[in-house]
Design a protein around this nucleic acid. Structure first.
Length: 416
RNA sequence: CGGGGUGUAGUAUACCGGCAGUACGCCUGCUUUGGGAGCAGGUAGACCGAGUUCGAUUCUCGGCACCCCGACCA
C-alpha cells in the first residue's frame, strides 16, 4: 500500500473530545473515525487490524469445532417476549416501530435468535453437541459510552453458542472454549487473567471472565502475578497484598478490561423456545446451552491501551495493519536514485508477499515521516535514503527499539 | 439515569450588544530533506431553536452534543 494513496490521514494533535489513550492514538493515526460517542468507523488501517483479530478468533474457534453463521441485527418483539427480555432489556436495547407499526429492535445479544433457529436443526441426541458462532454487530444504548473502543453503543461481538445433551458435555466443551480463549488473547499480544465472576442477571452460576490489566478498564481484578490465579473484585474476599490461596505468593489488585467471558447458560433459553432433543429412549429433554463472547473492537482498543509509548502505538506483529513500514527520504543529492531504490524494494516486498506500507509521500520532512511511523506503530521500519545508499544497504529498526541497523536488502527479505 | 464540566476554524485561544482576530494545523507552489524545516499564497469558525433588541456570537429561556465521576453493564 502506498501511503500517498491511503484513505485516512494522521493528525498532529489529539482530538479534543477524547481522553482515553486508545481513542486518541487510533484517531490520530487514522485508524478510526468517531461518528458519535461510543460509535466508531473503521478506516482502512483500523479495519486491517480488526480483520486480523477476527482471523485469529476464527482460527481458534473453528479449531474447537465452531461453525460460523451470521444472524440478523433487526429482530421482532415477540421473539424477545418468549424470555420476557423485551421489557427487561428496554433500557439498553434500541426498540422502535417500523412504518407499519410493528415493534422491533436491534439485537443487544443473540441467545433468543439462536435458540429459536436451533429448533429447526436440533431434534435428537445425535445432533448434539453443536457449536455455532458469529462475528456481528451488537447495539446497546449504553447510559454512558466511554473510553473510546472499550465501551461503545454499536460494537462487534464474536458470540459463540454451544448446545449439549447434558452438563457433562457442556463442561467438556467449556474447558475447550477456555483453551481457545486463552490462545486468542495470547496471540493478540495480551496477558489475560481468567477470573471467576458473577453471571449478573443472566445466570446464577459463576462465569469466567478474561481480564487484561489496564487503567482504562472498568473492572477490578485481584490477581496473583506468580501463578495467575485471579478473581473479580465484585465477588472476591481477597484484597490487595493478601496471600494467594493457590501458591502462597502475594495478590495484587488492579484495574482491568474484560475482553471476553464464558457462561454456562443451562436450559433457560432452550426451555423458553421449546428447544428439546430426544434421548436414546425417545424422551424429550431440554438442550443445555453455553455462551461465549469476545468483542473484537474492544480487543483492538485494549491492545492499544497495553502496547503504546509516548510516540504512538506498538502493534504486536500478529495483528499489525502492515508488517513493514518502508520510508523513503529523498535528500538533495540524488532524490531520483533514492526514489528508484525505494520503489524497487517496495516491489520486492510486495512480490515476496510481505504486507508493506510504503511512505512515498512527497514534500514531507524526514521528521514528519518518522513521527507518523511511530504513531502508526508498524513493527518493522525500513528507511531508504542517501545515507543508506552510501552504505549500500537499508536501515532497519524495530518499533520501540532505539537502535537501527543497516543491512543488505536481501538479508532483510530473508529475515522476514 | 444522578452529579459535575465544556460548547467560537481541525487544535488552542482572543475580543465584542454593531464587518470575529491570532497562532498552530490543513491545502497549493517553490525551496528543503535523518526526528513534526523555511518562504509565499490560500482554506476554514460563533452547537441548534425561541425570546429581548434597530441589531445577538455576546443577554434570557429551552433543547442538543461532547467529556468526567457515580450508578448500570446479557
Amino acid at each position: 500500500m502506498r501511503q500517498s494513496r491511503l484513505f485516512g490521514k494522521t493528525l498532529r494533535e489529539d482530538p479534543k473530545d477524547e481522553v482515553s489513550i486508545n481513542a486518541k492514538l487510533l484517531e490520530r493515526g487514522g485508524f478510526v473515525y468517531k461518528t458519535m460517542a461510543g460509535v466508531y468507523d473503521y478506516l482502512p488501517l483500523g479495519f486491517r487490524v480488526l480483520r486480523k483479530i477476527e482471523s485469529i478468533i476464527r482460527e481458534e474457534i473453528d479449531a474447537v469445532g465452531g461453525q460460523e453463521l451470521f444472524l440478523t441485527a433487526l429482530q421482532p418483539r415477540d421473539r424477545w417476549e418468549k424470555t420476557k427480555r423485551w421489557d427487561a432489556l428496554k433500557d439498553i436495547m434500541y426498540q422502535f416501530k417500523d412504518k407499519s407499526g410493528r415493534e422491533m429492535g436491534l439485537a443487544a445479544t443473540h441467545e433468543e435468535a439462536l435458540a429459536e433457529i436451533s429448533t429447526r436443526s436440533i431434534f435428537s441426541y445425535r445432533d448434539l453437541p453443536l457449536f455455532v458462532y458469529q462475528i456481528q454487530t451488537k447495539f446497546r444504548d449504553e447510559p454512558r459510552a466511554k473510553s473510546g473502543l472499550i465501551r461503545g453503543r454499536e460494537f462487534l461481538m464474536k458470540d459463540l453458542y454451544s448446545f449439549h445433551r447434558d452438563e457433562a458435555s457442556l463442561n467438556e466443551f467449556y474447558e475447550k472454549a477456555d483453551g481457545a480463549y486463552r490462545s486468542i488473547f495470547k496471540r493478540c499480544g495480551l496477558t489475560a487473567y481468567v477470573t471467576e465472576a458473577s453471571g449478573g442477571t443472566f445466570t446464577k452460576q459463576f462465569t469466567h471472565e478474561y481480564q487484561v490489566l489496564s487503567d482504562a478498564g472498568e473492572d477490578w481484578t485481584v490477581y496473583c502475578g506468580h501463578c495467575g490465579y485471579a478473581q473479580n473484585k465484585e465477588i472476591s474476599s481477597l484484597k490487595d497484598d493478601d496471600t494467594c490461596p493457590k501458591c502462597g505468593d502475594v495478590m495484587k489488585m488492579a484495574r482491568s478490561i474484560e475482553v471476553g467471558n464464558i457462561f454456562k447458560l443451562g436450559t433457560k433459553f432452550s426451555e423458553a423456545f421449546g428447544l428439546l432433543y430426544a434421548d436414546e429412549k425417545g424422551e424429550k429433554r431440554p438442550v443445555v446451552m453455553g455462551s461465549y463472547g469476545i468483542g473484537p473492537g474492544r480487543l483492538l482498543g485494549t491492545i492499544v491501551e497495553v502496547h503504546n509509548d509516548e510516540r504512538g502505538i506498538l502493534w504486536p506483529e500478529s495483528i499489525s495493519p502492515f508488517r513493514v513500514h518502508l520510508i523513503e527520504i529523498p535528500g538533495k543529492m540524488s532524490p531520483e536514485t533514492v526514489k528508484k531504490e525505494a520503489e524497487k524494494m517496495y516491489g520486492d516486498l510486495v512480490a515476496k508477499g510481505a504486507e508493506v506500507l510504503y511512505d512515498d509521500r512527497v514534500g514531507l520532512s524526514a521528521g514528519e515521516k518518522f513521527a507518523d511511523a511511530d504513531l502508526i506503530g508498524i513493527p518493522w521500519r525500513v528507511v531508504i535514503s542517501e545515507k543508506t545508499l552510501e552504505k549500500k544497504g537499508v536501515e532497519v529498526k524495530k518499533r520501540g527499539e532505539k537502535a537501527a541497523i543497516v543491512m543488505k536488502e536481501k538479508d532483510f527479505l530473508k529475515m522476514l
